[in-house]
C-alpha cells in the first residue's frame, strides 16, 4: 500500500487547531480561485490508481454503483474531469475532440480512451466509471431533489464507513443517519450541512478536511467490518507508529452546472504516525488533539480501541526528540 511521501502535498488536518482542539462542526469553506481545481498528482499516483482499479475489477458491486437513468449526468462528469485534468496538468493529460469523437490521453500511464461523447455504447464501462479510473479520488454524485441530495452514482475505493452498494439512492440525511452530533441549538449537524449544500453554486465549490486514524488498514467499509473490527485491537504503544495511519480526507463539493447535482470528491491521504517526526510541529499538534478526543467521538470514528496506545506512542516520540 502507500503513504504520502511528499509532505508539502499532504493535507495536514489540524492546521487550524494549534491552540484549540478539534470538534465536529459545519466547517465547509470557500475555495480560493487558485485552489478550485481538485486535481492533484502526487508521487503516489501510480500506486493509488493500481489499487483503485484492482478494487473496482475484483469487487465491482462493492465499489461502483449507479442508476440507469444517470447517463447524461455521467457524461457531464466525464467532461468536467477531463477539463480539470487538462487545465491543471497539460503535461500529463490531453484531449482531442473531433466533433463527438473524443480521445483522452493519460500520458503518465501511457493510455488513451477513445469514445463518442454522449454514446455509452462506444465504451465498455459506464462513462463515470471509465474516466474515474484515471484519478485516485473517490467520486459521489448526489442529485438535488426536493431540497435534498440523493446518491445516484458512486465510485469508491478508500471507504470510511461508506458503501456505494448500501448507500445508493439514499438522501443526504439517510446517509448521515449514523452521524450523532447535534449543534448547541439542537439541530442535527448533518441537516445543517444539507441546508448549506443547497447554497453551493456552479463555479464556486466548497471544501473541508476530515480526518481519522486507521489501524493497519486503508479502507474500512461495512462489508469488511468483521475483519477490521477485531484487527484494531492488535495496536500497542510500541507498534502504533507503523500500524496506525493518520487518514485525511480532503473533500470538495461541486455544483454541476447542467444537472444541478452536487459532485462530492474525496482525496484520501495516509501518513503513518511515525512519519510525523519529519514535521515536529505536526507531531506536537497531533498529539495535543488526539489526547483530547472525547470518548463519544473516538467511538464514532472507530478509533476507540487503539486511541490510547496511539496517544502514548506520540507522547513517547515527543519525549525522545526532546531528550536528543
Amino acid at each position: 500500500m502507500f503513504k504520502s511521501t511528499n509532505l508539502d502535498m499532504f493535507t495536514f488536518p489540524f492546521t487550524n487547531f494549534k491552540n484549540k482542539t478539534y470538534r465536529y462542526s459545519n466547517d465547509l469553506v470557500a475555495l480560493g480561485e487558485d485552489n478550485v481545481n481538485f486535481m492533484k498528482i502526487t508521487p503516489e499516483y501510480k500506486v493509488q490508481i493500481k489499487h483503485k482499479r484492482e478494487k473496482l475489477d475484483k469487487q465491482p458491486d462493492v465499489r461502483y454503483q449507479s442508476f440507469p437513468h444517470t447517463m447524461e449526468m455521467q457524461w457531464e462528469f466525464v467532461e468536467l474531469l477531463i477539463d480539470l485534468a487538462v487545465d491543471k496538468y497539460p503535461e500529463h493529460f490531453s484531449i482531442e475532440k473531433n466533433g463527438d469523437q473524443w480521445t483522452f490521453s493519460n500520458h503518465i500511464l501511457e493510455e488513451t480512451e477513445t469514445f463518442i461523447f454522449g454514446d455509452e455504447s462506444s465504451i465498455s464501462l459506464e462513462p463515470y466509471d471509465m474516466i474515474g479510473r484515471h484519478f485516485h479520488h473517490d467520486f459521489m454524485l448526489m442529485v438535488n431533489r426536493d431540497d435534498n441530495f440523493y446518491l445516484e452514482v458512486a465510485q469508491e475505493s478508500f471507504a470510511a464507513l461508506f458503501s456505494p452498494n448500501w448507500n445508493l439512492g439514499m438522501s443526504f440525511n439517510e446517509i448521515h443517519g449514523p452521524v450523532p452530533f447535534v449543534s448547541r441549538d439542537g439541530v442535527e449537524l448533518a441537516d445543517r450541512i444539507r441546508k448549506f449544500l443547497l447554497t453551493i453554486e456552479p463555479g464556486a465549490p466548497r471544501t473541508r478536511v476530515n480526518w481519522n486514524l486507521m489501524a493497519d488498514r486503508w479502507d474500512v467499509n461495512y462489508e469488511t467490518m468483521d475483519i477490521w473490527g477485531p484487527e484494531r485491537h492488535k495496536v500497542t504503544k510500541e507498534n502504533a507508529g507503523k500500524l496506525v495511519h493518520l487518514r485525511v480526507e480532503e473533500q470538495w463539493f461541486i455544483r454541476m452546472p447542467r444537472s444541478n447535482a452536487i459532485l462530492f470528491v474525496l482525496d484520501t491521504q495516509f501518513l503513518p504516525l511515525e512519519d510525523l517526526v519529519k514535521r515536529p510541529e505536526w507531531l506536537e499538534i497531533t498529539h495535543f488533539n488526539l489526547a483530547d478526543i472525547p470518548d463519544y467521538m473516538a467511538e464514532y470514528k472507530g478509533m476507540a480501541p487503539f486511541l490510547p496506545q496511539s496517544v502514548e506512542y506520540l507522547k513517547n516520540l515527543i519525549d525522545t526528540i526532546k531528550v536528543k
Binding site: 445508493l168 439514499m170 439517510e174 461495512y222
Partner: peptide, 17 residues
Amino acid sequence: GPFFSKVRKGYIGYPFI
C-alpha cells in the same frame, strides 16, 4: 443495524465473527 434502505428493502446487517 438501525438504518433501512428503500433501494435494498432491508435493515443494514453489520457482519461480525
